[in-house]
């Protein structure tokens, strides 16, 4: 069955220059392995097509548990010079949570 990440996890976006960071935290620790299996760096890059132009790297934090994604060239130049509405990319946590996985 397809499930939106929104239903099983939460996320906060942050910015460093033109780089976007996205945490992904399961509500239930038991869903962490699902996220590890299906929410790969490649899958996130595909989900954020048209938003993230650069490389996506995934970091695992099993003791929380949580994943952290670092997305390069994601903010149209970064907070200070970007022409986009959301110059920090703060709303993009919810772009990740729109992703669907198999549960």
């Amino acid at each position: 069955m397809k499930t939106k990440l929104y239903d099983i996890a939460h996320s906060r976006a942050g910015d460093k220059g033109n780089t976007l960071t996205l945490s992904l935290i399961p509500y239930l620790a038991e869903d962490y392995h699902l996220l590890c299996e299906q929410v790969t760096a490649e899958a996130v890059k595909k989900q954020l097509q048209g938003i993230v132009a650069g490389e996506v790297t995934r970091y695992e934090l099993p003791n929380l548990p949580a994943l952290n994604f670092v997305c390069k060239q994601a903010l149209m130049g970064g907070v200070t010079i970007s022409l986009t509405m959301d110059t920090h990319g703060k709303s993009l946590s919810y772009a990740l949570l729109e992703m669907e996985i198999e549960k």
Partner: peptide, 16 residues
Amino acid sequence: LATAKEQLLYEVMDPS
């Protein structure tokens, strides 16, 4: 735990 986890990873690149 949920608020603390979100903040711990906020604006973090490589957490190590």
